[in-house]
Amino acid sequence: MQAHERSPYLDCAQVHHESDFKYERYCTLVGNVTPAAADDISSDDAIKVAHKNQIGMVLFGLGRAGMIHLSNLLANPRVSLLYVVEMERARYDSVRARWGDRTPALVLPQDSATALADPRVDAVVVATPTFTHFEVIQQALDAGKMVFSEKPIAENAEQSRLCYETAAKLGLTVFCAFNRRFDPAFQAIQQAARRGDVGKVHTIKTVARDSPLPPIAYLKISGGIFHDCAVHDIDLICWVLGEFPRRALASASAHIAEIAAIGDHDTVAIVLEFDSGTIGTIDISRNAVYGYDQRLEVFGPKGLLTAENERPVNVRHQTSSGDTAVPFYFSFPSRYSEGYVLELEAFLDHVQGKIPLPILPEDSLRVSKIASACEESLRTGAFVTIDYAQ
């Protein structure tokens, strides 16, 4: 007779590892995880809270980022997407052809006040070109709506600060969507670094190389490589470390004639110096032909943390000729798909009063100031000391 080992059913229930964020999300959906309560927010955070299971929302813009947000909004059970504000009818018609009766109503930009006046609307997502952000955000705040905005909040620091000040006066929120903070790999590195897993951080490095090469039409209105692209890496480094640099040095080139012709750059290197002694470096390119190259490294006396490039499938083919795999993710919609989903979840948690604002106004304003310091460094060829009090 076969002897049986001790039954695993007699042991405690198996628990998933904290790194399995997808299973964690499943547990939340089926009710095995209790979300943070509104009481967890201090009384100092006097924000308007939507005591609703479904948040009524308006999406401004159906461009590159807007289409990502559209899918996530329509798929989220906590969202009732009521309107899309878009000036190009062809884009809306394409959306309607895919989503059919689930497609929210189209509103032209000149009629957006009608959508904002709808009492069912609690919040807006701003995914229009950068030069429109300030006007759209101010309009939404004046209508009493919470705001989720693609970075940057506005074209300059003065307008950005005004948006945050207006929101604070009205008890509302402006959430600046630095989606890389919500990428699971980067979150794991941030938590490990803050725990001291590598000891005092000596160096922190990022690589961010675009794929595919962005269209010139987009680059013309992007705000330049420092404020459009480098801000992601600057924010990522500051968030991982929990501090902001005192000095910045930047070098840049334009190898692509069309980018040089519009006064922008396609290749950038940045050095950030921190009071703690940590040195940060950023390596940026607009054109990586081998895929969307996104890496993070944190080094200290106790070891090294790395987030390497990710691939659509983890399959390798090994033969006598060598070892092959599919390329890295092609571009940001696929590489940061989880980050886009999780940043929306965080915003909804905040709107429903479950968590404080995940990205503080001073974070966004300081990152913009650092990017401007990099631009100044490029002009002068020297380190620029950053005064955050100004």
Rank of each mutant, 00 (worst) to 15 (best):
residue 4 H to P: 00
residue 14 Q to R: 09
residue 15 V to S: 11
residue 17 H to Q: 12
residue 18 E to R: 09
residue 20 D to N: 12
residue 21 F to S: 15
residue 24 E to A: 11
residue 28 T to A: 10
residue 44 D to V: 08
residue 45 D to C: 11
residue 52 K to M: 07
residue 56 G to Q: 10
residue 77 P to V: 10
residue 81 L to I: 01
residue 87 M to S: 12
residue 90 A to C: 08
residue 91 R to C: 07
residue 99 W to P: 01
residue 104 P to W: 02
residue 104 P to H: 06
residue 113 A to E: 14
residue 122 D to P: 10
residue 140 A to W: 00
residue 143 A to W: 06
residue 145 K to P: 04
residue 154 A to T: 07
residue 159 Q to V: 05
residue 165 E to V: 03
residue 175 F to I: 04
residue 181 R to S: 10
residue 182 F to Y: 08
residue 182 F to H: 05
residue 185 A to L: 06
residue 191 Q to T: 12
residue 197 D to K: 00
residue 199 G to M: 01
residue 199 G to Y: 00
residue 208 A to K: 13
residue 211 S to I: 07
residue 212 P to Y: 13
residue 225 I to S: 11
residue 226 F to C: 04
residue 229 C to L: 05
residue 241 L to P: 00
residue 251 S to M: 13
residue 265 H to L: 03
residue 271 V to W: 10
residue 279 I to Q: 09
residue 281 T to Q: 11
residue 284 I to H: 03
residue 285 S to Q: 13
residue 291 G to H: 06
residue 297 E to W: 15
residue 301 P to Q: 12
residue 301 P to S: 08
residue 303 G to F: 00
residue 304 L to Y: 12
residue 317 H to F: 06
residue 323 D to H: 13
residue 330 F to T: 15
residue 337 S to E: 10
residue 341 V to E: 10
residue 344 L to D: 01
residue 346 A to R: 02
residue 346 A to S: 14
residue 365 L to M: 14
residue 370 I to E: 00
residue 371 A to S: 13
residue 376 E to W: 09
residue 378 L to Q: 07
residue 384 V to I: 13
residue 384 V to L: 05
residue 388 Y to A: 09
